[in-house]
Amino acid sequence: MQVTVTTRTRSSSIAGYAAIALIVIGLALPAFASRSLIQDLFFILTMLTLAQLWNLIAGYGGMVSVGQQAFVGIGAYAMFAGVILWGMDPVPAILLGGVAGFLLAIPMAFFAFRLQGAYFAIGTWVIAEVTRLIIAQWKTLGGGTGTSLPREATSDIMGVEAIAQLFGLRDAAARDVLAYWLALLLAVGTMAAIYALLRSRTGLALAAVRDNDNAAQSVGVDARRVKWMVFLAAATMTGLVGALIYVQTARISPDAAFSVTTWTAYVIFIAVIGGIGRLEGPILGVLVFWGLQTAFSDYGSWYLLALGLIAIAVMLLAPRGLWGLIADRWGIALFPVQRRLILEGTRHG
């Protein structure tokens, strides 16, 4: 009897084509979308990417970090340093953000991996605070009050001129389009990489380590190596996203760039509300987050209070998130990683 192992389902095939269509539409969107929609999508895509990365280390890897703001902040500051100190163009300077995230992750992992569970969470948070306080001493980048990208740098970003002519936009709007495209690239790239990782041997090893460290090691998984790899990769990507966000913002301060609330709490809520440990979760979560923010933006910070309460309610009533409810109800998986055995002749999608 012929036997094959597959992760493919009918809904995942449909999702695959839909994803490709969405990416094409996303790329072409600036041709007809308004500037405010582009800005909203930039926000959604960057928060989505951060949530996917946190989901990767916490949801799949079991490393519950409360210090991801360290990588957003250090990435953003590295980009600022490249532009202000070395006169780089902001777009290539984003790459410095990735390098900085990677370099910070090495001492952080060295330290935090000695800690377990709750100690790990607090340890990562303390290291993020230490990083913030050290960066606040960096007087040439504005110290504790922060600084802005110089006008010469923001008015002459490469590619902006071409975009402005292509769509007939002003420079400011063209900058938003460029930032949006980069955000789309990062979001799609991150999700594709995570999906590929989860379907690989390393992905299986990662899930095994999360579920039981000792058992995974007993079947030959090098738990340390897997954790290091995933943590460093997520930190690098988070650094890139941080740098990109601050290219668009063009104004930085240590308190904002290293904000535990913005870059870790909201990011965690997005993952939790959508569903931890699945790729679909953060997508749904970020839409809920953005919807709340848009609908209640006139009522000050009440929506943030609501967000906190919703996260609590989800943890209590549906710990696997909104997508968990959908998956239980209809058995849909857009990005399946579960391996299923198919017996030849009985195949039905």
């Binding site: 916490a58 519950v64 409360v66 569970g117 969470a121 000050g300 910070s301």
Partner: peptide, 26 residues
Amino acid sequence: VLGKDILPPLLVTFGLSVALQNGMLE
């Protein structure tokens, strides 16, 4: 939410933290 998994209590209290901060702010 207490149990072997440390994630749920951590997330619930994190939610409470953000809710309290913003409630007090208002």
